[in-house]
Amino acid sequence: MFKKLVKWARVKSPWILHFNSGACNACDIEILASLMPHYDLERFGVMLKASPRHADVLICSGPVSKQIAPRLRRIYEQMPDPKFVVAVGACACSGGAFRGCYNVMGGIDSVVPVAAYVPGCPVKPEALIDGVAKLLGELNKESA
């Protein structure tokens, strides 16, 4: 019963944390833009949080540069279970334009497990909203 309640709360109002792992900023401003009045991700109950300890979903952009990899791992570890990572942008999915650069790991999934991939360089706010909505849909199915 309690578990059900928690799951319901998580699906209805996921709290997200945004982390830039060496992205070019374009995806980050698009993430911000989708939280702004024009697109308004908040109407799905999505709320941006500042601390990993409060977050359910980690929205992560960037190809993961070598210096940032330990930080990303640490942030992931600080998040309470169950946690989901959304890789935002081509470079977060696979390294994108930076594939082969000597200082990048090439994708979020080379460091932490990823639940959803949103492609695009940069992602459009619409795509991001779609990605998050799909993730929530999956979670909902699980909880049923």
Binding site: G22, P63, S65, Q67, I68, F98, G100, C101, Y102, N103, V104
Partner: peptide, 12 residues
């Protein structure tokens, strides 16, 4: 801290 190595990547 967050050097991606783009200048080098340009060379190939």
């Amino acid at each position: 801290y967050n050097h991606r190595g783009m200048e080098k990547a340009c060379e190939d």
